[in-house]
Design a protein around this nucleic acid. Structure first.
Length: 639
RNA sequence: GCCGGUGUAGCUCAGUCGGUAGAGCAACGCAUUCGUAAUGCGUGGGUCGGCGGUUCGAUUCCGUCCACCGGCACCA
């Protein structure tokens, strides 16, 4: 006699075990029609699964995120997979999960296919969907499930079952009128009638089980929505994201370029470099206030230093080196930490000097794999706002807290509200003993917990010398990039021989905190550009003000206005070209200059300026003296 | 690094089923002095990513390398 409690608190009692479908029917026929699955005590189940115990049940329809995901899941596992099998019968099936906004399926094709083949596959999928077949499932023992896929010659499915912990209840889903069978965790739609509009989007390679030692499979991506309106909105969103691409904006705004002779290294144009320097100036001020001292260390150092640190062993293949006539091998620094440790080691350090915070805008080079390169986000030469804090065990919590609050205040100034924080613990390849790792991870975890910040775990993704916190920001099309980082390192100071004299008169090894806030200036600028679609806040804009003349009679006055703006510290350009004001407005708008000052006869006579702000219609006429003070003040405001 | 795609003027792109290429914008020149997102006319500009092959002839076909794009793997 199961008693079913619905989300509104109402209860229904059934004489015997009952299915989700029957519950939906008991509520109403339209719900029964719309129902695609149920949640039983928090777990998603098929509509056909019987419930015999008292349970909390909610009906899932496609209008919820859960429902949408189930639809996408059914679409990939039942429709995409069987369409591909129909067209390419000797293809092997791997896995087909859902992702944000869609789904993918990994296949092993006997012959590689190209993106031209997405269209016929999509057509075949539509044919399958149009049958409206109902979907049923069977529960199977491990041996039975293995048998099914042995017969079907699906080695990947077989291996998934073999690797599974369970012995029973392997769910196999079938469609009416089709021989297609797939192994799936479910739940699935009760029938293909619930499939919404979809589109296959791209094709790519992907390693089996995400391991580059394994075979590369072919992954087909798609998107699906509950109705045509949502699909259209999604495609629109993609198009808009294209406009926000920092590579496109970099070109349009004349900030930087990349070229073949310097793969992965940026040619910064004057406007881009102005932004770069503005960020550095800002960070320098912030760090100074937070008790950091700025240093500079060599870009080339003997390889023995990198051998000692462990970098040579772990990342040697990704380091640029240079050999000189005297047969010495130098590494172009991929990190600043060994250099900072040298500064710490120079002279005898006392515990009284701790925490010692050393910062550097250090340009590093890393030979990143060619396939990883991506605009400004992933480059081979970049500058870090790097700092190393030498401290005692007791100081870890306070220093970690100080780093986090500094970072958060800076991200807030930059306009970022949604920051993803991840805790990455010991990787497989690492230096140091497990004892030391336990200590470092505990210390970092405790410090984070005491701050009350929400974070998720990123297991095995720490640095080779210590666990790390990743501060992740998202780009225009939803890709995540690590920007800030904080790492607790109990290994490198010892390996590089750093010590200080403690209160007890003995030598101790300091704790080393590595931290970066922007991370890479290059990447951070890429993220900033995408975040603001190039419309940077006034204080960051490469050119803050353009003074444009309407007729050449205003040239003299324009020079005067520009001089005053520049004297107030505003990045200002002058545009005296013999062009119409419309033309100038358009051009400077495309360059995303926040303020355009137009000068004509009226302004000369009244000693005023006409201020036009980017994205605003119309203009304000203000006295020159007022304009200067308004803009200068605005430039000091970080928001 | 791996899979798939792409590479034509400074930029955005069209085109040649093998007979050495075209538009718009930009640049330059002339005219125009204009009131808030493109003034008009004219001129110049390309080893069709690099190298090799097939061919009477290759930007086009084939091979290879490089770079870029989308993923995967990697990211100190």
């Amino acid at each position: 006699m199961p008693v079913i409690t619905l989300p509104d608190g109402s209860q229904k009692e059934f004489p015997e075990a009952v299915t989700g479908l029957a519950i939906a029917e008991s509520i109403g026929p339209s719900l029964a029609k719309a129902a695609i699955a149920i949640t039983v005590n928090g777990n998603q189940k098929d509509l056909s699964d019987p419930i015999s115990e008292d349970s909390k049940v909610s009906i899932i329809t496609i209008d919820s995120d859960e429902g949408l995901e189930i639809m996408r899941h059914t679409l990939t596992a039942q429709v995409l997979a069987s369409a591909v099998k129909n067209l390419y019968p000797d293809t092997k099936l791997a896995i087909g999960p859902t992702i944000d906004d869609g789904f993918y399926y990994d296949f092993e094709f006997q012959k590689p296919i190209s993106s031209d083949e997405l269209e016929p596959i999509e057509k075949e999928m539509k044919k399958i969907v149009s049958t409206g077949s109902s979907i049923t499932k069977t529960l199977n023992s491990k041996s039975k499930a293995i048998e099914v896929f042995k017969v079907a010659d699906e080695p990947y499915k077989e291996s998934i079952i073999n690797d599974a912990d369970q012995e029973d209840d392997f769910q196999l889903y079938h469609q009416d009128d089709s021989e297609f069978v797939d192994l799936c965790r479910g739940p699935h739609l009760p029938s293909l009638k619930h499939i919404g509009p979809f589109k296959l989007t791209k094709i790519a390679g992907a390693y089996w089980k995400g391991d580059s030692k394994n075979k590369m499979l072919t992954r087909i991506y798609g998107t699906a929505w509950k109705d045509g309106k949502d699909l259209k909105l999604y495609l629109q969103r993609l198009e808009e994201a294209e406009q926000r691409d920092h590579r496109r904006l970099g070109q349009q705004m004349d900030l930087f370029h990349l070229q073949d002779e310097a793969v992965g290294a940026v040619f910064w144009h004057p406007r881009g470099w102005a932004l770069y320097q503005t960020l550095i100036d800002y960070m320098r001020t912030k760090q100074e206030l937070a008790g950091y001292e700025e240093v500079n260390t060599p870009e080339l150092m003997d390889r023995r230093l990198w051998e000692a640190s462990g970098h040579w062993e772990t990342f040697g293949e990704n380091m640029f080196t240079s050999r000189t006539e005297d047969e010495r091998i130098w590494a172009i620094k991929p990190m600043n930490c060994p250099g900072h440790v040298q500064i710490f080691k120079k002279g005898l350090r006392s515990y009284r000097e701790l925490p010692l915070r050393i910062a550097e805008f250090g340009k590093v080079h890393r030979y990143e794999p060619s396939g990883a390169l991506h605009g400004l986000m992933r480059v081979r030469a970049f500058t870090q706002d790097d700092a190393h804090i030498f401290c005692t065990q007791d100081q870890i919590t306070a220093e970690t807290g100080a780093v986090c609050s500094l970072l958060l205040s800076i991200y807030r100034d930059m306009g970022f509200e949604n920051i993803i924080i991840k805790f990455a613990d010991r990787p497989e390849r690492r230096v140091g003993t497990d004892d030391v790792w336990d200590q470092a991870e505990d210390a970092l975890k405790q410090a984070m917990n005491s701050l009350g910040l929400d974070y998720s775990y990123n297991p095995g993704e720490g640095a080779f010398y210590g666990p790390k916190i990743e501060f992740v920001l998202r780009d225009a099309i939803g890709r995540d990039w690590q920007c800030g980082t904080l790492q607790v390192d109990l290994n490198l100071p010892g390996r590089l021989g750093a010590t200080y004299v403690g209160e007890d008169g003995n030598r101790h090894t300091p704790v080393l905190l590595h931290r970066a806030i922007f991370g890479s200036l290059e990447r951070f600028i890429g993220i900033l550009l995408e975040h603001f679609t190039g419309n940077l806040p006034f204080w960051l804009a490469p050119t803050q003000v353009v003074v444009a003349t309407i007729t050449s009679d205003a040239n003299e006055y324009a020079y005067e206005v520009v001089e005053q703006l520049k004297n107030s510290g505003l990045r200002t350009e002058i545009d005296l070209r013999n062009e119409k004001i419309n033309y100038k407005v358009r051009e400077h708008s495309l360059l995303k200059t926040p303020v355009l000052i137009a000068l004509g006869k009226r302004e000369i006579e009244d000693r005023t300026v006409s201020i036009r702000r980017l994205g605003k219609k119309g203009q304000e006429i203000v006295l020159l003296t007022d304009a200067i003070s308004i803009l200068a003040k605005q430039s000091q405001t970080h928001s």
